[in-house]
C-alpha cells in the first residue's frame, strides 16, 4: 500500500493532471497547431500531408486583405458601442440599486439584470431576430405605435426599419443586444465593489457638506477604480472576440455588406466557408496580438496606482 501513496511533492501535479491533460488537448495543442498552420498553405480535403510551408505569405495576405480590415473596423465599432454604455450604465445602476433597495429586493433586481448573462446566446439571438423582424417584429410595432402618438411622430420613423437587413442598422442592433446581455454582469461586479466601500467615508463627507454628486465623484469612483480596471479588461477582451451574437443574428455570414462581420466570424469563415485555413490562422494570431496590445493599453490607463508617495 505504501507504494501507492502520493508523495507530498507529487500530489499537486497528480491532482491537477485532469485539467492539465484537457488543457493540453483542447487548449495548448490547437494553439500550437494554428501557429503552425499560419505558415502553411493547405487544401484541407487532401489530408494533413498536403501542407506546404509558405513563410509569412499568409500574414502578408491578411494584412493586405480589405475584408480583414473591414472586419476589424466592425469589431472595434461594436466593441465600443456595446462596451462603453455597459459601464456607463452599470456603474450608476449599481449605485442606484445599492442606495434604493433593501437586501431582498436588491437581490431580486440583481437576478433580473443578471438573467441575460446566463441565458444561452442562441436563445437570445433567436428571440431578438424575431423581435427585430421588419414586418412582424415587436420593435417595429412599438415604434409604429409611438409614431401614432401625438408629439412623438417627429422622433420615430414613419416606415418599418429593416434592422438586420440594412448594413447601417446591423451594428447598432447587435451592439444593443451585447449591451443588454452584459450590463447586468458588470453591474454585479460594481455592486460587489460598492459594498466594500466603508460607510464612514460617506458619513464624513456628508459632515463636511459634500453633495451626492461630489461624494460619487470623490469617493465612489476612486474606490471603484480597481473593479473598473477588471471589468473594462474583460469587456475589451470579450468585445474583440465577439462571435456568437452576430454569427447567429446574421445567419453565420456577417450580414449585408458584412456590416456585422466581426474578425472572429471572418476568420472562422476563411477556414470553413472559404477553405483557407492558413490565412485564417494567420488572422487569428494577428487578432491575438491586437487583443494583447489593447489589454496592455487598458492596463496602462486604468491600473490601480500604487500607494501615494
Amino acid at each position: 500500500m505504501r507504494g501507492l501513496r502520493l508523495s507530498p511533492g507529487m500530489a499537486p501535479y497528480v491532482l491537477l493532471s485532469p485539467f492539465l491533460l484537457l488543457f493540453a488537448v483542447f487548449g495548448l495543442f490547437p494553439l500550437l497547431f494554428s501557429l503552425y498552420l499560419a505558415f502553411q498553405v493547405w487544401e484541407p480535403t487532401d489530408g494533413l500531408a498536403a501542407m506546404h510551408f509558405v513563410g509569412l505569405d499568409n500574414f502578408r495576405f491578411a494584412l493586405g486583405d480589405a475584408w480583414f480590415w473591414k472586419s476589424l473596423r466592425n469589431t472595434v465599432w461594436m466593441a465600443l458601442a456595446s462596451g462603453i454604455p455597459q459601464h456607463a450604465v452599470a456603474i450608476p445602476l449599481a449605485c442606484f440599486l445599492q442606495a434604493a433597495f433593501r437586501q431582498r429586493w436588491r437581490d431580486l433586481m440583481i437576478g433580473a439584470f443578471f438573467l441575460p448573462y446566463i441565458t444561452s446566446t442562441v436563445a437570445i439571438a433567436i428571440m431578438f431576430s424575431s423581435l427585430f423582424s421588419t414586418d412582424f417584429g415587436l420593435v417595429n410595432l412599438g415604434l409604429a405605435t409611438l409614431h401614432g402618438l401625438p408629439g412623438l411622430s417627429w422622433l420615430t420613423p414613419d416606415h418599418p426599419i429593416d434592422w438586420l437587413g440594412r448594413p447601417e442598422n446591423i451594428k447598432p442592433a447587435i451592439s444593443l443586444i451585447v449591451f443588454w446581455r452584459y450590463v447586468g454582469f458588470n453591474m454585479v461586479l460594481y455592486l460587489a465593489a460598492l459594498q466594500t466601500i466603508p460607510a464612514d467615508l460617506y458619513e464624513a463627507a456628508a459632515m463636511d457638506g459634500a453633495s451626492h454628486l461630489q461624494q460619487f465623484r470623490h469617493i465612489t469612483l476612486p474606490s471603484l477604480r480597481p473593479m473598473i480596471y477588471f471589468a473594462v479588461t474583460l469587456s475589451v477582451i470579450g468585445g474583440l472576440q465577439l462571435f456568437e451574437e452576430p454569427f447567429i443574428l446574421t445567419g453565420g455570414r456577417g450580414g449585408s455588406d458584412q456590416a456585422g462581420m466581426s474578425t472572429a466570424i471572418y476568420l472562422y469563415r476563411m477556414a470553413f466557408d472559404f477553405n483557407d485555413f492558413g490565412a485564417a490562422s494567420a488572422m487569428s494570431w494577428l487578432l491575438f496580438f491586437m487583443v494583447a496590445g489593447l489589454t496592455w493599453l487598458t492596463n496602462r490607463a486604468l491600473r490601480p496606482q500604487g500607494p501615494a508617495q
Partner: peptide, 15 residues
C-alpha cells in the same frame, strides 16, 4: 447541414 460539411472537411483533412 453546415455541421455535416464542416465535419466532412475535418475528417478528410485529418483522415
Amino acid at each position: 447541414f453546415a455541421d455535416h460539411h464542416t465535419a466532412m472537411t475535418t475528417a478528410l483533412s485529418t483522415a
